[in-house]
Design a protein around this nucleic acid. Structure first.
Length: 846
RNA sequence: GCCCGGGUGGCGAAACUGGCAGACGCACGGGACUUAAAAUCCCGGGCCCCGAAAGGGGCGUGUCGGUUCGAUUCCGACCCCGGGCACCA
């Protein structure tokens, strides 16, 4: 009996109660926000800017947020401990359509809905213990932020980077607004993945991102800290392609669209093999050709409809090729040959010039088309098999279409016998000299259409005056404030258009009546530069403070989901380059290192409400505490991989934290004399410091960092086994102390609440956030004795315990002498022995 | 079709430069404590075969082949899963 009363009381009193600990520290931290505040730019510490993608304030955090922010928070805390001046801000991507939908559903104004969501999500973030510098908070739907969107727009307008044009646009009937190309996924809206996008003609504002296409492409090579995957995706999206423009003159009469059809080709060397020219159904010349031929018009309309249907269904690559002869001809400028003009449903108006030269012998698609319609197939590049010129044969139709560029020209007049590459060069030069073409580069990237026919966004600061036409709002009149109390319904036109008192305003140029632009900006504008505003969100005279920016940029580490690899990350790079050209910043790229975390899945599917596999952070926190919830998202797998959520897994982490807590809570009676376990514990401690430090410096495999902490604790507990733990003091007091301090320091980035609590209980008064990260001592980490594997012909036959620093010769001698080895060897001849010091000896026998 | 990831126990995973496969955790089995349960603690475990047992042998990282003293790791071909792009002229 007496031996029990002691232990039961201690354990019962000190049961790990995460709610109590976490609420206590959360309250303290909120009382002292300066703890997490970045120092000004004259700080002597090295700066470190760690950024996580800001959330859309949908109402509640989801597990993906928790994972993202747990990674960033661990890094921020670690960098503080390494002595850096850390900027770790957070904000809200607060404009967007859900606020309007919620407004209609709940009859709450978007602003109120959004701001109350923000308030709630901020509470959740604080409850999770994320160390943000809230003095830098940015909320994009507030005028002191979005006025700078408007300011940027005016600057771009001044420089010709913002322009208005009528164009075919992607229209999402669900959003009742236009979408940028980047926002169309599989022919559907990126938010409504079941809703096919429609094509409409609208007047739209565009930003000339294509002016920066080449730089955006080139600078990808300057981003070694970005995942190759993301860089490849951006490279493909920009889609640079080198070739030539060649003008084909219309044979015969001329219509309003002119008599020249420019064609873009990457294979001008095959131009003597062109047997037709093919136009997109929407090509302006087609309208002229159709003229008053109702039969042709009907066919063209049919082709156009097919193409549109395919676009809307998202399967433009699978459409069956159709075309119609337009009844007219063009002249090939290289050989004066007459080529028939066809209109075809697979030619896209929005790539290149909307017209191609068709070379069936040397292009898969042209070949297919020519076979179908019986067009001539003329070989102009000598086909060859597998780099064997001798086997080349003009007659070998089995090799058609031959698309290689590793051969020579034939049937090409003065260019015969040139290599493809030489021919491309010469022909482009000759075309330029003859003024019927030139070498040219095209991009897949399109200008960024930013007009949205919605209410809850940044008003575009433009006016339409009856006399002066399009007039920008003067800078001094910014911000153009979004009016409140606007009736939002889903039907018809921009909601702002119905707010007469807002729309009607005098023209700043002539004073006459003018109307405001009623479209708002794409919300990707907001997220394109928010990370600059973070550095000083209070500056009122400019979007950013130059000196502060110069200090903090580039962002040292950006962390977020790979789903933003194209949209957000390419717009942000574009915005940075514009800001540089405006003289606001010196950096040419915003982000030095990018980390894309994996998705969270459960039961084999992405976590979502509709799939019914949603795990809600609030529930997890209530059950296990914030530390365990966060730590599980780091422990389940490495951060870059998909995380397979398992509720039971959180139990394991929570149990570990509770074991930590219990060990630290016991009343230890330790001696001053060194104990046998000291060396073993300190050795493991220093091995652990090394592992975790390397994980932070390198691969960010926090799952193994946490496993290392578990191993360390397991060892310490093992050393204490063999009796009631609080009586069986296996270590000396000083070794215990060393272990405890360092353990807490390493626990801190992953479980900040418990770490702070234990730090305080250890009697430490310093700020754990700034406590120096432990250094590992190689001498202490070194093993005395290690196990060496003895193999014979690669199969393990024995294991030896030897001093850690045994030499190769010594190991070989010991291995050969081992009884089991001797028995196995038994008369066989030893050919050689491979010795890997510290690891194994492999004896090769015959 | 093209370009990236990934495929390892019942499950999540680890093995970083070619050197003991399965660390750490979950679930499971056995035991201790308990009137009982929960919680906690201790022990066990890849699979197959031989053996009463101690012990011994074989197989094993998607499949097939190669390089090597030695392959989860490198090379070649293929299969499956996930993601991105896809008539881009």
């Amino acid at each position: 009996m007496p031996e029990r009363e002691n232990s039961t009381r201690t354990v019962a009193d000190e049961r790990y109660d995460p709610q109590r600990i976490e609420e206590k520290w959360s309250a303290r931290w909120q009382q002292r926000p300066e703890l997490f505040r970045a120092e000004p730019f004259d700080s002597p510490r090295p700066k470190y800017y760690v950024l996580e993608m800001l959330p859309y304030p949908s109402g509640a955090l989801h597990m993906g947020h928790v994972r993202n922010y747990a990674i960033g928070d661990a890094l921020a805390r670690h960098m503080w401990m390494k002595g850096c001046n850390v900027l770790h801000p957070m904000g809200w991507d607060a404009f967007g359509l859900p606020a309007e939908n919620a407004a209609i559903k709940n009859n709450t104004p978007p602003r109120q809905w959004t701001l109350s969501n923000i308030a709630h999500m901020k509470i959740q973030m604080n409850r999770l213990g994320f160390a943000y510098d809230w003095s830098k908070e940015v909320t994009t739907c507030l005028p002191d932020y979005y006025r700078w969107n408007q300011w940027f727009f005016l600057k771009m307008y001044e420089r010709g980077l913002a322009y208005r044009k009528k164009s075919r646009v992607n229209w999402c009937p669900e959003c009742a607004t236009v979408l940028a190309n980047e926002q169309v996924v599989n022919g559907c809206c990126w938010r409504h993945t079941e809703t096919p996008v429609q094509q409409r003609e609208l007047e739209q504002w565009f930003l000339r991102i294509t002016n920066y296409a080449q730089e955006l492409l080139d600078d990808l090579d300057r981003l070694p800290g970005w995942p190759e995957k993301v860089r490849t995706m951006q490279r493909n999206w920009i889609g640079r392609s080198e070739g030539a423009l060649v003008d084909f003159k219309l044979d015969g009469g001329v219509g309003p669209a002119g008599d020249t059809i420019p064609v873009f080709t990457t294979r001008v060397d095959t131009i003597f093999g062109a047997t037709s020219v093919q136009l997109a159904p929407e090509h302006p010349v087609v309208a002229d050709l159709v003229g008053n031929d109702p039969e042709l018009r009907a066919k063209v309309d049919e082709l156009m409809a097919e193409q549109r249907r395919a676009k809307e269904a998202g399967d433009v690559g699978e459409i069956e090729k159709h075309g119609v002869f337009a009844g007219r001809y063009v002249i090939n400028p290289f050989n004066r040959e007459k080529l028939p003009i066809w209109v075809a449903n697979y030619i896209l108006m929005d790539y290149g010039t909307g017209a191609i030269m068709s070379v069936p012998a040397h292009d898969e698609r042209d070949y297919e088309f020519a076979k179908k319609y019986g067009l001539e197939i003329r070989v102009v590049i000598l086909p060859r098999r597998q780099g064997e010129p001798s086997e080349a044969s003009e007659q070998d139709t089995a090799l058609l279409p031959y698309t290689g560029t590793d051969s020579l020209l034939i049937n090409s007049g003065p260019y015969n016998a040139l290599s493809c590459e030489e021919a491309m060069r010469h022909m482009a030069q000759d075309a330029e000299r003859g003024e019927f073409g030139k070498a040219a580069v095209t991009y897949r990237l399109k200008d960024w259409g930013i007009s949205r026919q919605r209410y809850w966004g940044t008003p575009i600061p433009m006016l339409y005056c009856e006399h002066c036409g399009i007039v920008p709002v003067p800078e001094k009149d910014l911000p153009v404030v979004l009016p409140e109390n606007v009736d939002i319904t889903l039907t018809g036109g921009s909601p702002l258009g119905r707010v007469e008192e807002w729309v009607n305003t005098p023209c700043p140029a002539c004073g006459g009546p003018a109307r405001r632009e009623t479209d708002t900006m794409d919300t990707f504008v907001d997220s394109s530069w928010y990370f600059y505003r973070y550095t000083d969100p209070s500056v009122a005279t400019a979007p950013v403070d130059r000196k502060t920016i110069a200090y903090w940029f580039e962002i040292d580490q950006y962390i977020g989901g790979v789903e933003h690899a194209i949209l957000h990350l390419i717009y942000s790079r574009f915005w940075t380059k514009v800001m540089r050209d405006l003289g606001l910043i010196a950096n040419r790229e915003p982000v030095a290192r990018l980390f894309t975390q994996g998705m969270i899945i459960k039961d084999g599917a992405k976590m979502s409400k509709s799939f019914g596999n949603l795990v809600v952070p609030d529930d997890m926190i209530a059950r296990y505490g914030a530390d365990a919830t966060r730590m599980y998202t780091l422990f389940a797998t490495s951060p870059d991989r998909e995380l397979d959520w398992q509720d039971a897994g959180v139990d394991g982490v929570a149990r570990f934290l509770s074991r930590v807590h219990r060990f630290f809570s016991l009343a230890h009676k330790y001696s001053v004399e060194p104990q046998a376990a000291d060396r073993r514990v300190l050795r493991k401690l220093h091995q652990t410091i090394r592992r975790i430090t390397e994980d932070f410096d390198g691969r960010w495999h926090f799952n193994t960092s946490i496993a290392a902490l578990m191993e360390l604790l397991n060892l310490v507990l093992e050393e204490h086994s063999g009796g009631p733990i609080e009586k069986h003091a296996a270590m000396s007091a000083s070794a215990l102390r060393t272990f405890q301090r360092n353990f807490v320091l390493m626990l801190h980035p992953f479980a900040p609440y418990l770490a702070h609590e234990l730090w305080e209980r250890l009697g430490e008064t310093s700020n754990l956030l700034r406590a120096p990260w432990p250094k590992y001592d190689p001498a202490l980490a070194k093993e005395d004795e290690i196990e060496i594997v003895v193999q014979i012909n690669g199969k393990i036959r024995d294991r030896l315990f030897v001093p850690a620093d045994s030499s190769g010769e010594e190991l070989q001698r010991l291995a050969l002498a081992a009884p089991k080895v001797q028995a196995t060897l038994d008369g066989k001849q030893v050919v050689k022995a491979i010795v890997v010091p510290g690891k194994l000896v492999n004896i090769v026998v015959r």
